[in-house]
């Protein structure tokens, strides 16, 4: 496994990625003190309790795609401010900050890449960019990723990590759910495989559109998955939520996941699935 030793394409830290900058770090799952080096070797998962630290979209590119195989598309798409949205801050300032902080132009990167030699249309979301929220840019990039799958007749892989639709683009964000799902209907009709990978968290508008529509849906362990946020549900029912509610394990139990896969096994699993799910000739 050469990919994680490559120094030039190091997995690097960021605020919401939970990846530590120091030599030592405390696991959020079990409290164990782990060296950052061993954490990194372990795919940013705790060797003791298997807690999966959140990583970024570029990290998934390195983790899942064959070396240097990503041909990135639509990286030049950036948010407009269609509503002139302002709360305590201007939306345009929020976007500018997120771009500066993450080095990304929005909350998803997409392109054509290879997984163990299988050519795929690939997209990975990034929570570090305004909570991975889906506005017009994310919707458009996902739509184009689906269209690339259709045009080239290659499988679609989407790694989701999102709190849902982006509030600051209002109804336009909501409509991205319809746009992406309608295109997936076309993909489905053409019998092109789509594997949806859910990571922590995948909720609301993203969960209620493309993330739920994979032919096969897999999730990393202990991810928060669901439609409504746990706080909203607790408020509505006026009580405590049961333990493990809205976790990957809960989703699997209720029949909405095919499998829970450790990050260390993710590439192998995708590769295996792609071997079975071929585009009919």
């Amino acid at each position: 496994m050469a990919w994680f030793r490559k120094k030039s394409r190091d997995l690097s830290g960021g605020e919401k990625r939970e990846i530590p900058d120091g030599v030592w770090t405390k696991c959020k799952g079990c409290g164990e003190i782990i060296t950052s080096i061993s954490l990194k070797k372990n795919f940013w998962t705790c060797p003791k309790c298997n807690y999966h630290f959140r990583i970024g979209s570029r990290d998934y590119v390195i983790l899942l795609l064959d070396d240097e195989s990503l041909d990135e598309y639509d990286g030049n798409l950036v948010s407009a401010d269609p509503l002139g949205f302002k709360d305590s801050r201007k939306y345009t300032d929020r976007v500018a900050d997120a771009r500066k902080k993450t080095g990304l132009n929005d909350a998803v990167i997409a392109g054509i890449g290879k997984i163990d030699g299988h050519v795929v249309s690939f997209a990975a979301m990034d929570f570090n960019f305004i909570g991975g929220s889906m506005g017009s840019v994310v919707g458009e990039k996902i739509a184009r990723a689906i269209e690339r799958s259709i045009k080239r007749e290659v499988p679609l892989i989407i790694i989701s990590c999102s709190g849902g639709a982006r509030m600051m683009e209002g109804i336009l964000s909501l409509m991205q759910m319809a746009k992406t799902s309608a295109l997936l209907a076309k993909l489905h009709k053409m019998r092109i495989p789509y594997i949806s990978v859910l990571t922590n968290p995948t909720t609301a508008g993203v969960m209620a559109s493309y993330a739920s529509l994979g032919d096969v849906i897999i999730a990393e362990p202990q991810a928060l998955l669901g439609f409504a946020g746990p706080r909203v549900i607790a408020q509505t029912i006026g009580g405590e939520l049961p333990p493990g509610f809205q976790s990957s394990e809960f989703f699997l139990e209720h029949g909405f996941l095919d499998a829970i896969v450790n990050r260390s096994e993710l590439k192998k699993t995708l590769s295996l699935l792609l071997g079975y799910m071929r585009v009919p000739k």
Partner: peptide, 10 residues
């Protein structure tokens, strides 16, 4: 639905 979305291209 395909055409819904407002964004800029750098």
């Amino acid at each position: 639905y395909r055409v819904i979305g407002i964004y800029n291209e750098l």
